[in-house]
């Protein structure tokens, strides 16, 4: 450890806060970047921003993942000017269901589930959440559920990609000193 004069618990807490802030900031940047890229399908999103929620989930815990994703959705929508627009609610409901799926699967799966599995479930949750919101708030008719299969397929692909990226990042990050004391796979609620 670098400094023995500091209380290690406090140090861990500060580090956690700083890294979550960093993750959130990067997630917001990616979220905005993706928003600006032309999209072939209206609701098609690669969801790279979710990688940081995955990192937070695996490096810290469920609460960390929640804060990264919620901060990202709200702040990014403020930046992009979509706050409280239909798009924001789509994004929010997708984010809530995605984070819910990720944290519960992590909690239930413990060590048996890796970043890819969590990411795929999160992406599926995102699609279902968006459709729920679209059905409830915007179109209000069952036709939107015909979009589920293609959206789920996209979710599967992007979920796998994001999971792989998160896994690679996790491997590297765990070698860094600030994360060395966090055991692989373990997640203790502070």
């Amino acid at each position: 450890m670098t400094s023995s004069a500091v209380d290690p618990v406090r140090l861990a807490g500060e580090r956690r806060r700083i890294f979550l802030a960093l993750f959130s900031a990067l997630a917001i940047a990616l979220h905005a970047l993706e928003f600006l890229l032309p999209s072939p399908v209206p609701w098609f999103r690669l969801g790279f921003a979710n990688i940081f929620a995955l990192l937070a989930l695996f490096l810290y815990d469920g609460r960390a993942a929640w804060s990264v994703n919620m901060v990202r959705i709200v702040v990014a929508s403020l930046f992009l000017g979509t706050f409280f627009s239909p798009r924001f609610f789509l994004s929010l409901s997708g984010g809530i269901l995605a984070t819910l799926a990720m944290t519960t699967s992590r909690k239930l799966g413990c060590e048996k589930i890796g970043p890819v599995g969590v990411s795929v479930l999160g992406a599926c949750g995102h699609s279902v959440g968006q459709l729920l919101c679209a059905w409830w708030l915007i179109v209000r008719h069952d036709g939107v559920w015909f979009l589920l299969p293609p959206l789920l397929l996209i979710a599967l692909v992007t979920g796998i990609i994001n999971g792989f990226v998160a896994d690679a990042l996790l491997q590297r990050l765990r070698r860094h000193p600030p994360f060395e004391d966090i055991a692989d796979g373990a997640h203790s609620d502070v």
Partner: peptide, 13 residues
Amino acid sequence: RMTRLDRLIVVSV
């Protein structure tokens, strides 16, 4: 590194 559960999730989705 993908766990068995990961693969199961991918296949079932």
